[in-house]
Design a protein around this nucleic acid. Sequence first.
DNA 1: TAATTACCCCATCTTTTTTATAGGTTTTAT
DNA 2: ATAAAACCTATAAAAAAGATGGGGTAATTA
Lengths: 138, 138
Amino acid sequence: MLSKKTKYAFHALTYLGKHRDQKTVLIQDISEEYGISHKFLENILLELKKAGILGSKKGKGGGYYLIKEPKDVALSKVIRLLDGPIALLPCVSLNYYEPCIECKSEAACGLNKVMIQVRDEMLKVLENKTLADILDKE
Amino acid sequence: MLSKKTKYAFHALTYLGKHRDQKTVLIQDISEEYGISHKFLENILLELKKAGILGSKKGKGGGYYLIKEPKDVALSKVIRLLDGPIALLPCVSLNYYEPCIECKSEAACGLNKVMIQVRDEMLKVLENKTLADILDKE
DNA sequence: TAATTACCCCATCTTTTTTATAGGTTTTAT
DNA sequence: ATAAAACCTATAAAAAAGATGGGGTAATTA
């Protein structure tokens, strides 16, 4: 399951996507809209900024804004950023690979093979669906 | 990611599948093979038994054995049993549904729609692949 | 200059989940 | 009768997630 952090990130991105007409959006506006702690959300937005998805402006009239087109923000990117691996096993993760400790040989592991398939099916959706798809349906 | 519990369950099932020629297999044999704590594994095997996947026999000469054909043990069943929901959000879980607290309307939630797709793609694999597929590749 | 707002680093605290252990009970073969 | 092995329940320990709070600094607008 996705962590709250990731879910909050999606909420924030959706909110920012909906308010692209205004220059900036305050952290507080988003945190109030969804009942998320201001401080908790601050960290999430900061991570999204560092990842190049959001921009920000300090001072009065400042706030956050989408720096990318919604269609260019793949859901997989957001999940990996906040939650880490999408795969169900570390040994089949593309971005966070780690061998399974108790596994003698990956090549001879039947579970490994199936989980690669699951990963690929998940990625078919998560790599191709974007923030734009979410906004479309709201 | 799958919990260790689930991963251990798959290891145990694989082991039992490989040793179907013998009447029973000791917990200890499996725990030693994969370096899993005996007691921890005990609970896992018990759950698999209660779910009707394994059978057991007490006393000397006792142990566990597969009660189902490997081809009849869907991977989804094992995951749900030990780990709970397969879906990435509670609001799209078929077996463990819960509404999202901060969500005003599920019908108007764009994330919900996409996560239904992800769930269905995952299930396409996990419902159709079975222990037999794992055993094939080992 | 004053007010606003993001940025940053930290520390801590609670809650939940996961992982692991302990100790005793029941069944069964020999 | 004894030993072997599963069965059962409870609890502890560890890790992760979620949340809060302080104390600022830096940039920007008015």
